[in-house]
Design a protein around this nucleic acid. Sequence first.
DNA 1: ACAAAAGTGTTCGGGTTACACCCATGG
DNA 2: CCATGGGTGTAACCCGAACACTTTTGT
Lengths: 250, 250
Amino acid sequence: MSNSDAARAASIGLAVSTVIFALRDADGAPRATPPSAGGQGTDAPATVWLPLVRRIREPQCGRWALPGGMVELDESLEGAARRNLAETTELQPTYLEQLYAFGDVNRSPDRRLVSVVYWALVRPDEAAQVTLGENVQWFPADDLPELAFDHNLIVDYALWRLRTKMEYSAIAHAFLGDEFTLAELRGVYEAVLQKPLDPANFRRQMESSGAIEATGGVVTGGRHRPPKLYRYTGDVQLVDAGPLTPRIPA
Amino acid sequence: MSNSDAARAASIGLAVSTVIFALRDADGAPRATPPSAGGQGTDAPATVWLPLVRRIREPQCGRWALPGGMVELDESLEGAARRNLAETTELQPTYLEQLYAFGDVNRSPDRRLVSVVYWALVRPDEAAQVTLGENVQWFPADDLPELAFDHNLIVDYALWRLRTKMEYSAIAHAFLGDEFTLAELRGVYEAVLQKPLDPANFRRQMESSGAIEATGGVVTGGRHRPPKLYRYTGDVQLVDAGPLTPRIPA
DNA sequence: ACAAAAGTGTTCGGGTTACACCCATGG
DNA sequence: CCATGGGTGTAACCCGAACACTTTTGT
């Protein structure tokens, strides 16, 4: 073994991976419009999906895995996550947050590898633009095949974080565009939490939270009474988004 | 530059650091007994402290820093944190959880370094056994000097996590021994949250939570009515302790 | 006019807050 | 017996769940 090999073998590899969440119809259709909160109505209820990439080299060649790659010397961890996302799925996520660092000794059969994992939320229109192919496909987050390495564990943890954080933070708007109706926003909550919500109480909770405000516009062309449009105010902090925003709103 | 040097320089260094929290008297006394919940009584109120080590080599030589070190090839991230804790402070923490991975490009002026940071809670009697010296000292968490690297930011974030988590999880018992009185437990909450709590309501909340149970014993020798002793039941999950315990109690 | 979704009002019950009050012990 | 903290009781209050009801549109 040469000096060069020794030095390489003695270093711990540092990678990033990202769990990308988007809402799609339960049957897998790309869903151009946001989820319109119809639990058992004409619309199929939306569910949480994520894109995976097929590994094309050993180890674990052929298995589906989270998009990711090695961290370069001149990029931050989040920068590496964004670069890999752009390279593999052409996505620029609305929301991106560090999830956890996975570093068990034997998590990769090849060499010692530590992965800093991020999780991301993207809008349905963004998700529809992902270039699918033989090696990039969407999967329902609650029903995954056996993935490479410890990626099943990682996705389960990310999904748990998404669902628990949805209940105390204002991340739901990351699944929507700038303007949205309360029914669309409620549809996001129902899709993620997998339970119906009372429209009346949901409206009051959102209005009293100060997280949203009416834009003044309405959505015409629907079959029924035109709903008001709202936007996210930004007044409410997204708590626990990392060490740079550690403060709870006063 | 030889091949060996190139390989070494091209790798990203992986380190672990730990923010260790303990409760001590506001004046810095090591406090043999747990905090007995006397906000403005005879006892000085307890506050959150942490041990720091003085750097004895460049870069940032002479500055105070979090205990930590490089991750070895054959140890997990948490294993590396525990080993470094034992080596520098001889502490075996009751509670240890991953906090965040810090990896900005310029966070270390020397070489590219990514630090996976853990946070720990230790009991007062353990904390008192830390071998102090010229290069290991306790500091109040809310009033730190300028630390090495980005360690001020890290401690602030850890402190925020401690305080927010105290409000929805059952981590307070990690500051206490196996048996404790309700006044001692309340003292922990008051010290961390920095506000007085109603003894009557605190008692009912703890009893109804199912997190504690009476041992049957009482503390005699006090000046007043002997308080009952309680123990932590373990029925209540410590939520958000990482991907291995991602489930909320039913 | 009717269906269906948008939006409002009201009641009910559990949980938290504030504080009055009794209990037990050492001095 | 009194001061002090341990421990119990209780009424006011807040907030979310449940659901009846009104409004507004397209067909």
